[in-house]
Amino acid sequence: MSIPKSAGPNNTAQGEAIKAIPLRHPWRNVIAVVLVLLLALFVVDAAQRPDYGWPEVGKYIFDKRISQAAWVTLSLTVYSMIGAITLGLLIAIMRLSPNPVLNGVAWLYLWIFRGTPVYVQLVFWGIVALIYPVFTIGIPFMDPWITFDNTIFTNLFVTAIIGLALNEAAYMSEIVRAGLLSVDEGQEEAATALAMSWTQTMRFVVVPQAMKIIIPPTGNEVISMLKTTSLVAAIPLSIDLYGVSRGISAVTFTPVPLLIVASLWYLLFTSVLMVGQYFIEKRFSRGSGRRAESSTPDPTPPEIPSPGALPGTVPAPLGNEPGGKG
C-alpha cells in the first residue's frame, strides 16, 4: 500500500487552488432592483402628498406631550413585564410541581387568561372598581371586620399595569416552563447528588441554563408588550403614546401625521430593545458551544470527542412555544 506524498498532514506542497466562477443569481438582482425602485417611488410620492403632513410630523415629534406619553408607554411596558415575568415564573413552577392542587390552579389561570382577548380583559379590569367599590375582610355573610375603598382599580395607570401583567403572565409562564423543561434531567440529578438543595439547584444550575431558552422569546414578548400597551384605551387610559397622539389629532384634525409620530417613537423603542436583546442573549449563551466562546483563552484546539460523548452540551430540544397572542 502506498500513500501519496502530498497526503501527509505536514506537507507544504498545496494542491491547485480553486479558482471557479461563482454561481450567478441574476433574478435576485432583478427583483432587488425592482423593489428598490418601487420603494423610491413610494417615498417620493409620499413626500409630496399633503395628507402625510410632514411639517406636522416635524412639529409634534418632539412635542412635550408626546415625549411624556412615550415615557408612560415605556413605564407601562417595564412594570407590566416585571409583573408578568415574576408571576409567570411562579405559575411555571406551579405547573411543574407534583402537587395536583398547584398544578390545577396554574392550569385554570392559563385557561382563562390565554383563552380571552387581552382587550376584553382590559375592559373588565377597567370596570372592576364599579363591581367592587369596597374590599372587605371578615366572615362571609356577616358584618365585615375591615372595609376599605377600592383605590387600586380607581387608579387607571395601576389598573392598566395589572391588566397587562395578568394577561402576559400566562404567556410568560409557558415560556419559562419550556425553558425549565429544556434543561437535561441529569443536571438536577447531579446537583442533588452534590447535596445542593432544591432552591440552590434551581438558582445556580437549572435557571441559568434555562435562561438561554427563555430570553429570546421574552425579548419578543417585551417588544410585543410595548405595542400592546396601546390597548389600554380599553380601560380607558389615554395618557400613553397612542392615546395622546389620538387626543391631539382629534383637536387638530391631522390623524396621519400623529400616527406617523407615534409609530416613529414605537420604532425607536423596539430598535433599542432589539439591541439590548442581542447583548443579553450573548451573555447567557456562555459555555454553550465552541463558537460562543470569546472570553476564554483557548489556544489549543480541543480534542474532538465523538458527538455521542457530549450529551450534556447538545442543545436541548425547545419545548412547545405558545402560539400567537390572544
Binding site: Q187, A190, S197, Q209, G287
Partner: peptide, 22 residues
Amino acid sequence: ASLQRRDIGMVFQRFNLFPHMT
C-alpha cells in the same frame, strides 16, 4: 437528606457537568 448526601459522591455515565460553568 442532603446532609446524608454530602458524604457520598456520584459519577454519572453522561458526566452531567454544568455546561454554563468552567
